[in-house]
């Protein structure tokens, strides 16, 4: 190895001779041992390196630094843990809410609301005048006139029932302890041509079929108790109570 090459390696840094490959390191060592210029220079460089490395590390470290760093690490971990815990709590609350909702839907049965029942009955039964009945039919979009021949002083109740799967208004009349139920049928829902006007007597319960005097699209099926339907028709006074 010549001086120029040796100087090149020296300039690269002696402390890391191990990073030169085996052959270069050996050649350099041989040259430095025998060369009156490069040898002393290499020694001087080594001394400078040692000095530099020593002074470089001469940095006083604040005594409290490690303690503060440990605290910082712990603080960060606590914050992260709290954030995780918050997320888990929120997720758990959500799941619990969903579960409770499902349970509620499966098991929910309402407590009977007596007030609701009372109001409902009150509206329909108290003072059932014919004009109120017409109003009610209109409100429910039912275009069927009520039977004109009945005595509406005897009307006690009306509602919509289902007859052969069709919605049918039902009027309930009472005479003493006897009742007459009147089903209002329209040819919208039934083939009224198959009906014959008349009465069928049965054992205690009788049936009558009547048509509206002017509107043949409407028929009334009456189920009544007692011997005569006449008690429920106009002209008969309701019994004194």
């Amino acid at each position: 190895m010549d001086c120029r090459t040796a100087q090149f390696f020296l300039a690269l840094g002696r402390l890391r001779e191990a990073e030169l490959d085996e052959a270069d390191a050996q050649a350099l060592a041989t040259h430095l041992a025998g060369c009156p210029v490069c040898g002393p220079q290499a020694e001087a460089e080594k001394a400078f390196d040692r000095q530099l490395a020593q002074v470089m590390q001469d940095v006083a470290i604040p005594k409290s630094l490690p303690h503060r760093l440990h605290e910082q690490v712990a603080r960060y971990r606590r914050r992260r843990w709290l954030a995780y815990a918050g997320m888990i709590t929120a997720a758990a609350a959500l799941l619990l809410g969903v579960w409770l909702g499902i349970q509620w839907r499966h098991h929910y049965r309402p407590v009977p609301d007596l007030d609701l029942l009372h109001d409902q009955v009150l509206v329909e039964v108290v003072n059932p005048r014919p004009e109120k009945l017409l109003e009610w039919l209109h409100r429910n979009d039912i275009d069927v006139p009520p039977p004109p021949q009945f005595n509406y002083a005897l009307l006690r109740h009306y509602y919509i029932t289902r007859f052969q799967g069709k919605p049918v208004p039902l009027l309930l009349f009472a005479h003493g302890n006897r009742q007459a139920r009147v089903y209002l049928l329209s040819d919208q829902h039934f083939d009224l041509n198959g009906l014959r006007a008349g009465q069928q007597q049965g054992s205690g319960v009788n049936l009558a079929v009547q048509f509206h005097p002017s509107d043949h699209h409407v028929a009334y099926v009456i189920v009544y108790e007692g011997d005569s339907l006449a008690d429920f028709l106009v002209g008969d006074e309701p019994p004194a109570t």
């Binding site: 100087q7 090149f8 020296l10 300039a11 002393p40 220079q41 001087a44 460089e45 001394a47 400078f48 000095q51 530099l52 002074v55 470089m56 001469d58 940095v59």
Partner: peptide
């Protein structure tokens, strides 16, 4: 330059000077 050219006396210095 990258080349060492002459042997210089070893300086003395402290942490602050460095």
């Amino acid at each position: 330059g990258d080349m060492v050219t002459a042997i210089e006396p070893l300086p003395t210095f402290d942490s602050g000077q460095l």
